[in-house]
Amino acid sequence: MSLAFLIEQLLNGVQLGVMLFLMAAGLTLVFGVMGLINLAHGSLYMVGAFFCAWIAGQTGSFWLGLGGGFLAAAATGALVEIVVIRRLYDRDHLDQVLATFALILIFSELARWVFGDRPLYLDVPAVLSGAVPLPGGGGYPAYRLAIIAVGLTTAVGLYLLIAKTRLGMQIRAGESDREMIGALGVDIRRLYTAVFALGAALAGLAGGMVGALQSVQVGMGEPVLILAFVVIIIGGIGSVKGALVGAVLVGVTDTLGRVFLPQLFGLLLPPSEATSVGSSLAAMAIYLLMAAVLTWRPKGLFPVDG
């Protein structure tokens, strides 16, 4: 096994991680500030991807598409918050889960209606197609490096937003005491809409960027949503720092598990059984990680309420 192979796989893990972070950040903020479980977060990811693909198809520019997907997801998020989510804050989690699950079904059928059954086409921009050489031979897709860069930039931006700005201060206050910041005269309804739209925009950004690597189709959000939930549980629900650490941890574990577990079993079993057993176990790797983290720290790595 060469060094380049190891570097490439680590980069893959980090890239999957930062993509998950974009999803998990919104999910964890919404849960932390509003106490809401939003299953429809994956649909916002899908909205971002569909608009990105559609606008890029119409205008020929991936960047316009990405910006459009980001804005469309933010607008959809704000709209959904005002029309539906707002009524759910005082309900218990079961009602929230049921209502947001209904939103998934509605969004999926709407997307099918508007954009059709066939997967949409979205390609990486010409500037970022092709591979960048790695030390020790081999190459790494430039587009994936760009995703890592965008993800880390977003993480820094989100940190600055939360730590340094007035909105961030209100978000932090909202996390620790919801009634009190309302009593202090902050317009809590607007704050909630803003936080929800921010989370939606990040999901839409992730959807648009990943759409160029995968197929843009109905139902693309749900597998990612499950991973994003694992991430925020590992990171500590409500913690953005936890979401970042958890996301990279999950990304790297998943990638390395997929690569090395089948090889590990190859030492003990005949090849075809080894790949089969190893792949099955690799599919479970992140859940084992989650279980391990939770036995060690039941509230996740960075619990918000101490």
């Binding site: 081999g138 995968q214 693309m220 597998p223 790949t275 792949s279 690799a282």
Partner: peptide, 21 residues
């Protein structure tokens, strides 16, 4: 080489690296 991927998997970066190797 012979790999079984997960059903419904959408990211093949790890597999492509194994192919390269």
């Amino acid at each position: 080489g012979e790999i079984y991927t997960q059903l419904g998997q959408t990211d093949y970066a790890a597999e492509i690296a194994q192919v390269r190797e």
